[in-house]
């Protein structure tokens, strides 16, 4: 169901979508059952003259079974939810598959810096490629990220990857993802980080191998045009689009250019 709204562009996006589907089935069943009972009772047992309500204490076994049996069923379905969830969670957040590539993500008020490991696959070497608000990824590579923050809490969130992780100052948090679909996606900061929280986005571009290498070369030559800025320039104008928004835009670009 999530796929209907957002691309699923990473290897574990499908698992999360499936989990969503499983839970939707289970709670949908319960919701319609209880909601149906509620509505049915309201219409069935309306006040009629001369009809007195029944006296039901709800303490005899023959009566309590109506709430107890469903509640055992709830327990059973809870176990299913927990089991499926833990399988997915362990895969996404608790295990780190071997890496093909490495990127360091640094959040600060209010932009993202990315340090791509370059050909040697190690950070803090001469061939690192640093960009601002532009993350470039090679399709099919398993990426590890090192997430850092310079000031306050930020959140590295790429909805298309179903990826989200807080950046905590003073800690380096690592995790992984594996892009599986070529395209450019939004990165949004998902943790309140102050005045510019609403503009703290970046563009995540998943490249084919060839285009990835070209882009990296362009960045190093200095002939590269930022995807982020291109993307911000071509967005669909909204009906109430006014000049103020443009001002904010240039502010965002200005900020981006500082870092």
């Amino acid at each position: 169901m999530i796929e209907y709204f957002v691309y699923s562009a990473s290897s574990f996006a499908g698992e999360i979508d499936d989990l969503f589907f499983v839970i939707t089935l289970i709670i949908g069943f319960w919701f319609f059952l209880t909601f149906g009972a509620l509505v049915y009772f309201i219409f069935k047992f309306r006040r009629k003259d001369g009809v007195k309500a029944q006296y039901i204490t709800g303490e005899k076994h023959s009566e309590t079974k109506w709430t107890h049996y469903p509640h055992f069923a709830v327990i059973a379905m809870d176990v299913v939810i927990i089991a499926v969830n833990i399988l997915v969670w362990v895969n996404i957040k608790q295990t780190l598959p071997p890496r093909d590539n490495l990127v360091r993500v640094i959040g600060q008020q209010w932009s993202w810096s990315f340090i791509h490991a370059g050909p040697d696959g190690e950070l803090d070497t001469a061939d690192d490629v640093a960009t601002v608000n532009d993350l470039h990824l090679k399709i099919g590579d398993t990426y590890h990220f090192e997430l850092q923050s310079r000031d306050v809490l930020h959140n590295f969130a790429v909805p298309a990857f179903r990826l989200r992780q807080d950046a905590v100052p003073g800690r380096t948090i690592s995790g992984w993802f594996k892009p599986t679909k070529i395209g450019t996606y939004d990165l949004q900061c998902a943790e309140m980080c102050g005045y510019g929280h609403g503009i703290m986005g970046a563009a995540v571009t998943v490249h084919s191998e060839e285009s990835y290498n070209t882009t990296m070369a362009q960045i190093q030559n200095g002939t590269y045009e930022s995807h982020y800025q291109k993307r911000m320039g071509t967005k669909t104008p909204l009906p109430s689009y006014t000049s103020q928004v443009d001002d904010e835009d240039s502010f965002a670009v200005l900020l981006a250019s500082i870092f």
């Binding site: 509620l38 009772f41 309201i42 047992f45 309306r46 309500a53 039901i56 709430t67």
Partner: peptide, 11 residues
Amino acid sequence: IATLYGGSIEL
């Protein structure tokens, strides 16, 4: 919800 069962509901 079971409390409503068999009641004399006045809205």
